[in-house]
Amino acid sequence: MSEVPNLDIIIKGCSKNDRESQKQLYKLYYSYAMSICLRYSRNYDDAVEVLNDAFMKVFSNIDKYDTARPFKAWLRVILINASIDHYKKNLKHNKNQELSETQGMTSDFRPDNEIRYEDLMRLVQKLSPVYRAVFNLYVIDGYKHKEIAEMLNINVSTSKANLTKAKANLRKMLKVYEDAAI
């Protein structure tokens, strides 16, 4: 049975290239999909671009989706792949982009008693692209370093080193955040 009651009908509509069905599917999974895309992207606009790349793949391959299986899991793989594709596409640009992760932290954050979702997301987005990708793949999405290395075309040791650096940068940013909150 589908995770959403009328999902089968929506997917059938999508397979017929029905625009209304496509919008329903897009809307239904927008929040879930955007939460993934935002993690892998530098900002909201980039995330929307990745999201739409992923949904283009979803719509063009909807016939390959097995309705007996969870749609969310299928979508998730496509979203992560689209995010990685986006990262690779901008690799040259990314290499020239040396970010100072702590820059602007004090003014961006509005500390209160709880670290909010938006704040954590912004911290991740402040990471350099390769750190962000490795951190997301390993920590949030559960991939192993060997898989990450293959996905990003880097060495396993590089993946491990990037993860360590990503975590170190996040700690640094969180410290700034904590100091600003005091």
């Binding site: 919008k23 929040s31 929307v48 954590l120 920590v139 949030i140």
Partner: peptide, 26 residues
């Protein structure tokens, strides 16, 4: 624990639908 902080913190996001994103998609 950075891992736990981000795993838990980033799982609670609820992002409202953005019509402009769909217009680009369309």
């Amino acid at each position: 624990d950075i891992d736990q902080l981000f795993q838990e913190g980033l799982s609670s996001g609820n992002i409202p639908f953005d019509e402009s994103a769909w217009i680009k998609m369309e």
